[in-house]
């Protein structure tokens, strides 16, 4: 398989891999590096690529595992993830505009536990079926629904809190 054929197979889901990596690692640079690493690994294993029933799901699992490993090694070496993606908005305007609300939602997503971040990413952003998510995460649908519900409720509660604070 040459690079052109390889890229034809693996390019269509590069954005999905990147968004998942960024959801986990938060930093744009780290996420880009992670995607490159995953593609390098896929390229080295290209001989087997046609035997995988679902290359995309396989790549998603690889990305998830790679990013969680990165996160773990960072925490182990006591390095704080540095990212400058979002300007930290200290005070919230009294009249909540849609954009600010959106920025707030994205900020809340960053602070969710990793597993919930991954689940909400795959379901509410990528709009995947529970069966597909279960396959990627090697988990079961019930566990995924529970994690998803927790994640959504956390976002809702924090938004209500901030929203009420904003208009009162």
């Amino acid at each position: 398989m040459n690079q052109v054929e390889f890229l034809e197979i693996v390019s269509p889901f590069k954005d999905k891999l990147y968004r998942l990596a960024k959801r986990i690692l938060i930093s744009t640079d780290e996420a880009e590096d992670a995607v490159q690493e995953v593609y390098l690994k896929l390229w080295k294993a290209k001989a087997n690529i046609k035997s995988y029933s679902n290359v995309e799901a396989f790549a998603m699992t690889m990305t998830k595992n790679f990013c969680l490993d990165r996160l773990k090694s960072k925490q182990a070496s006591n390095l704080k993830l540095v990212h400058t993606n979002f300007p930290t908005s200290g005070n919230i305007e009294r009249n909540l505009e849609a954009n600010e609300g959106v920025a707030m939602v994205l900020k809340i997503l960053e602070d969710l536990p990793e597993q919930q971040r991954i689940v909400i990413q795959l379901r509410d952003v990528e709009q995947l079926e529970f069966s597909e998510i279960a396959k990627i995460l090697d988990s079961n649908e019930t566990a995924i629904r529970v994690a998803l519900s927790r994640a959504r409720k956390t976002v809702r509660n924090l938004m209500i809190k901030k929203y009420n604070y904003g208009i009162s």
Partner: peptide, 24 residues
């Protein structure tokens, strides 16, 4: 109060990988 949630999740889906896939 729910509106930003759905807008935010939709916006998150628009993000793109800006680099070229770098192979040997």
């Amino acid at each position: 109060q729910y509106k930003p949630i759905f807008i935010g999740l939709e916006a998150a889906r628009k993000e793109r990988f800006q680099k070229e896939i770098d192979l040997p």
